[in-house]
Design a protein around this nucleic acid. Structure first.
Lengths: 252, 252
DNA sequence: GCAGTCTGTTACCCCTGGTAACATCCGGTC
DNA sequence: GACCGGATGTTACCAGGGGTAACAGACTGC
């Protein structure tokens, strides 16, 4: 039971005679319910649970989405779209900026997204579309998508040579992996991580390795990153969570 | 419903397999069988199948490994150990080398590994240990492990500050993601990819973006990477597959 | 002989993904 | 109104996979 929502809203003039019209809305509602469940119970939610949350039973879900993978793919598409949009906005800003600012803003946008909704992120990373592929389940496809988006931004001519794409996918993986680690340990606040990663892409690694080999050890890296961390503190969209308490950086 | 008949909660004899020393050999044999099946059927192999491959039945597997996650974790540990060893050897070479050579060798070692055995790689990436964690299934732990390994190599003093660890995990993710993309599309041979990624870490991105913004578009990146690609052709272990021809990128 | 433990088995439970078959409402058409 | 198509919904079921209980030999050591 529990069929709240009174069904048949009909408050708006349902003039559209298209048959898919109503079913599209139903589909969205089902997707909403699935989203709620997945965000609450994690990606292992059963179809029964999702159906119950939607106030219906399994076969309806299967009529709409084919199978579980279809549902999850539809769900993932939504979120991926959202993220890709934000990334695109950060990569192609309206006013002219330096390349470094663009990269930094892009990184921060990504991090802000996964920080704002870790559940979505986990779902996308670990489950979305991982089942369908025959043998080699491509890494969740959403990462690929963002990568291609970034690659296109590197040379807007459409050439998109191998190096650019390798870099783009590499950068996405870089931000994703360090972001994942950061989400778990929270060793610093987001602007600092953004700055560290931008530094890394801007050639901080050879510098750090060279100096550490010669004599002075790790202080170099620390100071380098910290100096730019401050300047990055206010670049990207909000979505900032509250301070979330301490967890001191514990940087030696 | 009906009646649960006590049982109350999974018993969970953590690490049930510890007792006999002779059982250790059996354990290895079981693990071998599981390995065979997983490499043949992919990570979705059922416990029944694995048991059959080992010539036994399910309960024995459960006595040895607790549950499926335990088996998979044991399996993953093996392969991760192997990879971590290779990485460590590449990061800390016996004779003195330049930092750049070390990084390049490390990247190439990783890529060589995933190229040599994609099945293992897929398994580690997608399944290993992804189930056990309560809510947030950390990314397969093997990536983390390699990351920590790399982080330690950055400042051998043991400090391992935040920037170094952020970089290390980022680099691992970078190599992993681009390697994954490369495995799927094979847009170039391994040495080229290794060179591209090393270039990226050595500050090629700002250069490329600056020049592409000013005038010349993508030729810069291509030539830069190609020049070093040749020099990297013979750094790490072989395991090279045949050329596999040139699938043109042709991304949507 | 007995206890203990390791090996192995059969048979079972429960849950989950997925399907079949049947019942229903609602909008449109003659 | 009668009728029909299509979406909505249901109960009931199946196959298969994870996991467990309970029992059966075999080997050790006393």
């Amino acid at each position: 039971m529990t069929h709240d929502e009174a069904t048949t809203g009909a408050s708006a003039p349902v003039s559209a005679a298209q048959p898919g019209r109503r079913s599209a809305r139903r589909r969205r509602e089902l997707l909403d319910a699935a989203d709620r469940v997945v965000m609450r119970d994690g990606p292992d939610a059963s179809m029964n649970t999702i159906a119950a949350e939607a106030g219906i039973t399994k076969p309806i879900l299967y009529r709409h989405f084919g199978d579980k993978d279809g549902l999850y793919r539809a769900l993932a598409e939504r979120h991926t779209e959202e993220l890709a949009l934000a990334i695109r906005a950060a990569v192609h800003p309206g006013r002219t900026t330096t390349p470094r600012d663009r990269i930094q803003a892009t990184i921060d946008t990504y991090l802000a997204h996964i920080e704002a909704n870790p559940q979505v992120y986990r779902f996308l990373l670990h489950r979305a579309g991982a089942e369908s592929a025959d043998v080699h389940g491509h890494v969740t496809a959403y990462q690929r998508r963002v990568g291609e988006e970034l690659a296109r931004s590197f040379d807007p001519l459409g050439t998109t040579g191998v190096p650019a794409r390798a870099w783009a996918h590499g950068i996405v993986g870089m931000v994703q992996a360090s972001g994942d680690w950061w989400l778990d340990e929270r060793p610093c606040r987001r602007p600092e991580l953004t700055a560290h990663l931008t530094e890394l892409l801007w050639g901080a690694l050879p510098t750090a390795l060279a100096t550490s080999t010669e004599g002075t050890a790790d202080r170099t890296t620390d100071s380098t990153a910290a100096s730019t961390a401050a300047s990055a503190a206010d670049s990207a969209p909000e979505t900032s969570a509250q301070p979330t308490g301490g967890i001191p950086p514990k940087a030696g």
